[in-house]
Amino acid sequence: MKKQSVFFVLITLFICSKAISQSNLNNSECAPLNPENFNKMIDGKQVSLFLLKNGNLTAAITNYGGRIVSLCAPDKNGQTADVVLGFKSIEDYLKATGVYHGAIVGRVIGRIAKGTFELDGKTQSLTINSGANHQHGGLKGFHNQVWDVKTVTDSSLVLSYISVDGEMGYPGTLIVEARYQLTSNNELTLKLLATTDKTTIVNLSNHAFFNLSGEGNGPILGHILTIPSNYFCAVNPDKIKTGEILKAAGTPFDFRKGKPIGKDIILENANEQLKIAGGYDQSYVLKKKKSNKIVLAATVVDPKSGRKLEVLTNNLGVHFFSANFFKGNDIGKMGKPLHFRESFALETQDYNSSNQKSFPTLLLKPGEKYETYTVYHFSSIK
């Protein structure tokens, strides 16, 4: 009888331990993504989902637009959550009202007035997809293209795309490469490379939306944001850069000492730039001249979870967007609506504009190499 009692005790402990283990898995706020839901042919090219892991981070990336679908990071207690907004299937991406989630945007991120710019004394005309203007590379920009898969490892993915001469109106055939890497230092890194056979303009970025509490877990207005810059670019009512660089000091745009995102956003009816953008939707100046030097672009801390995100880049600037126009129409991969100001974007990019001669140039010439580098470094605070 004693042996039987010991046996039953051991069995009970085993079942309980499995139940606890399963409970911990269920408590994880990282959606189990099925790669089969991304298995689709688009424009004659194969779309797939790639699952990466290294240390405490896991990521899911699709070659449809080079999108970061998922990025799971631990909080101060080791509890993981998916901190990037995304969808559970390629069909959800195709029907979403928000079309840039997690995507690589190009050839030029941002808006170009009336879809025109001057190049070698000639006016170049781009496709129009935002009122009377060109935005984020056009309707069939890089976000809506199927990228070729060059290499895949457990922790890295290299994608490439050839943008042919005249695509969306841009001159020159641009050969682009995107290198995603999860490092053992709790980082997701992204290197974007490009070459051209004709002089063209290029300004690439990734457009991931973050919520450090986890996708669908409420507003980000309590997140503490630090941007180490006293200068940001003014925009006109079309949200196109005017060429004027304003001082952030003494305005709602001053994040140098760190403050909750929502602290001054309530002044949107009193501050012209906040009112124009419906919140934050402006570029900050990090450097005045192009160089390969990596600088800190921004730091974000979620006091609730303790998650901390540092964004570093060799770009000239970073664009901060407070998700001002989400209306809950799209349902994310966690099964929750994606609501107004429940995420933020920090788009590392050159702050310059193709039509502002006072800004550093966006030109890329044959024989030159375009190269940007961004690091998303995760840690936690108690």
Rank of each mutant, 00 (worst) to 15 (best):
K3F: 10
F14L: 15
F14S: 13
S21L: 11
N26H: 14
E29Y: 08
Q46S: 12
F50S: 08
F50W: 08
F50H: 15
N56V: 01
G66A: 14
R67S: 13
I68A: 07
S70E: 14
L85S: 07
S89H: 04
I90H: 04
L94W: 06
A96L: 09
V99H: 13
H101P: 03
G102C: 03
A103Y: 06
G106T: 07
R107D: 07
G110Y: 01
R111E: 04
K114E: 15
D120T: 05
D120H: 11
G121W: 11
T123Y: 02
T123P: 03
N129F: 03
G131V: 12
G131R: 05
H134E: 06
G137L: 06
G138P: 03
V149S: 10
T151K: 11
L159I: 15
L159K: 07
V164Q: 13
E167L: 06
Y170P: 13
G172A: 11
G172I: 12
A178Y: 05
Y180H: 11
Y180Q: 05
E187C: 04
T195V: 15
K198N: 10
S205I: 03
N206A: 03
H207T: 06
F209D: 00
F210M: 06
G214D: 01
G214P: 01
G216A: 03
G218W: 01
P219S: 15
P228M: 11
S229D: 10
F232I: 14
F232N: 06
I240R: 00
K241W: 05
K241Y: 08
K241H: 10
L246R: 10
A249H: 02
A249C: 00
G250R: 01
P252M: 01
P252Q: 02
R256N: 15
K257P: 00
K259W: 07
K259G: 09
E268K: 14
Q273Y: 06
I276W: 01
A277L: 08
K290L: 08
V295R: 11
A298I: 03
L312H: 12
N314P: 00
S322D: 02
N329G: 01
P337W: 05
R341D: 05
E342Q: 11
L346S: 04
N352K: 00
S354Q: 08
K357H: 07
Y370M: 10
T372M: 02
S380P: 03
I381G: 06
